[in-house]
Structure formats: C-alpha cells, structure tokens
C-alpha cells in the first residue's frame, strides 16, 4: 500500500516538474484552448443532465415554439437562450447533444485508426520483407487520395451492402469505420519508421535471444516506444476527424437526423438561412469552429512540447 502511494506521489512530482507542464503554463493561448476543450468535453458528456431541454423527447416539443429567435433579439424567450429550430427544439440543447455525437464519432474513429495503423505499422516495421512492401504500397495508394473522398466512398459502399432500415441503426458505426479507415496511413508510416529503428536495438535483440515470441516483443517492448509520436498524431487527427464527420453529415451521408451531430444541425439550419432564421445554422457552426480551433491549438502545442528537437 505504502509503495503504491509513494509511486503515485512520485509520478505527480515528476509531472509537476516536467517541461511539458512548464510549457503548458507559459502559454496563455494553450491554457485557454485547454479550458475551452475541457468545457466542451464535459458539456457534451453531461448533456443529458445539463441541457435545458431534451431535444429528442417528442412529447415535450411544441411546434408553436419553432423559430424563436435568440433571447437578446425581439421575440426571444428565456427558455431558448440561443433560439429554437424548425421543430421547436432549443438550439443550445441540440448543440450540446450534437457535440456529444460529434466527439463520440471523432474520438472513436481516431482510436480505430490508431489501433489499425499502429498494428499494421508494427507488423510492417518488425516483419519487413514482402509484408512490409505490400502494406506500404496500399498506404501509398490511399495517401494519394484525400481522406474525405475515401470516407465518402467507404460509406457509399456500406450503404449499398446494407439495406436502408438496418443502415440507420448502424450509421454511427459505419461512419466511425469509414473515417477510421481513411486515417490509418499516418499512424502506420510513423510507427513503421520508429519500429525499424527500435528492432535493431540491444533490448529487442536480447528479448529475441531469450526466446520471447515476436508478437510479445512487438507488444511489450516495441509498442511503448512508439506511443509518443502516435499520441501526438492522434491529437492533431482528432480535429480533422471531427471536421470530416461534420462534412459527411452535412453532405447527408453521415449520422441520421434522429441522432444529429453538429454537421447534421448545420445542414438542417442551412435550409432556413434565406428566410432569416440564421441562428439555427450559425450557432452550431460556431460551436464546431471553436471546438476544432481549440483542439488544433492543443495538438500544435503538444507536438512542439513533446519534440525536443524544436526546443
């Protein structure tokens, strides 16, 4: 027990004295974006308890409430701080629930891309030979197309393979898979590079000599050494994944309207832009932009902070 406490205390002492924390505290912009990101994540996760209204409870929605402007404009009501949309849903609540879907898809697809990319990168770098050549050629081919096109294509193919009603249930999963599949290459390339360096180091050779099976060497010995760069890519990737999800949903091939993400909300609101109800689309849009911007800034900072060459 004492040792566990001591270990935790020791870990904290190391964190508090680290360069990373110092560089975090020395930049106001980074601290601001970290705060914004934290507010977003907690707001999205706690949406069912924090949101003023449950936008999916049809019993509580009143069509008479539709198109209420934001509270500071003429005709605004305190019940709808940012106004209401065409179905009488509170825009603030739909944004909170929408961020939830956006973040869920973003994080899950980054994790999936990471899992796939790191696995293939490890195998490619460690095994080498024709396996390596094959994986890297596939990566090269995929890399020459933009991720959004790949995601759109995979989504379209799955849509064809699965009949319509089933597709609505699986839409979120399909979206996660298609975005994940369009982002794995970056991880695979980076991990492969690091693995090729690590596998010739003495600790790996020693593990081989005492007869540790290759899979175990990759997992226990090489993997911890490739996690640093991987996590940096993941942070930067998160913003891109959120944008990709929003774009696909905006195009109408992403999540179904019953589970709106920020992109879906913007698409719904876009129809009312010309009739003057700008708040239905502009507020979700601003929410998306601020989220992406803060995650981007955090990713940039993390990349610089963890890279000793830049200091």
């Amino acid at each position: 027990m004492d040792t566990a406490v001591a270990r935790v205390a020791d870990w904290w002492r190391r964190v508090l004295a680290s360069d990373v924390l110092h560089s975090f505290r020395s930049s106001r912009l980074v601290m601001l974006s970290a705060a914004v990101a934290a507010i977003y994540f907690s707001g999205a996760m706690l949406a069912p308890w924090l949101a003023p209204q449950d936008p999916f409870d049809l019993a509580k929605l009143q069509l008479l409430d539709a198109f209420t402007p934001p509270v500071w404009m003429e005709g605004g009501e305190a019940r709808f701080p940012l106004g209401s949309d065409n179905q009488g849903r509170d825009v603030l609540s739909t944004i909170m629930f929408g961020s939830r879907v956006s973040l869920l898809v973003g994080v899950a697809s980054v994790l999936f891309a990471m899992l796939l990319g790191v696995t293939l990168g490890l195998i490619s770098g460690y095994v080498g030979g024709s396996v390596d050549a094959f994986i890297m050629r596939v990566a090269d081919i995929q890399l020459s197309f933009p991720a959004i096109l790949i995601a759109l294509l995979i989504d379209g193919m799955v849509r064809l393979a699965i009949p319509g009603s089933r597709h609505t249930e699986l839409a979120v999963l399909v979206l996660i898979l298609s975005i994940g599949l369009s982002f794995w290459v970056q991880y695979a390339r980076t991990v492969r590079g690091v693995t090729m360096v690590e596998k010739n180091k003495e600790y790996v050779l020693a593990a081989r000599v005492i007869g540790v099976p290759p899979a175990l060497i990759m997992l226990r010995h090489v993997l911890p050494n490739v996690m640093g760069p991987t996590l940096v890519i993941a942070t930067i990737n998160l913003a891109t994944a959120v944008i990709t999800e929003a774009t696909l949903s905006f195009l109408g091939v992403g999540v179904p309207p019953t589970q709106p993400s920020l992109g879906t909300l913007i698409r719904i609101g876009n129809d009312f832009l010309f009739s003057g109800e700008w708040w239905i689309t502009i507020f979700p849009g601003a929410a998306l932009a601020i989220l992406v911007l803060s995650v981007n800034l955090l990713g940039d900072w993390l990349r610089d902070a963890l890279n000793p060459k830049l200091r």
Partner: peptide
C-alpha cells in the same frame, strides 16, 4: 480550422 462548408454558408 473552419470546415469548407461552413465558410460557404
């Protein structure tokens, strides 16, 4: 940071 479609809107 702004997605293309948002700039358009």
């Amino acid at each position: 940071s702004l997605p293309t479609f948002l700039i358009g809107i």
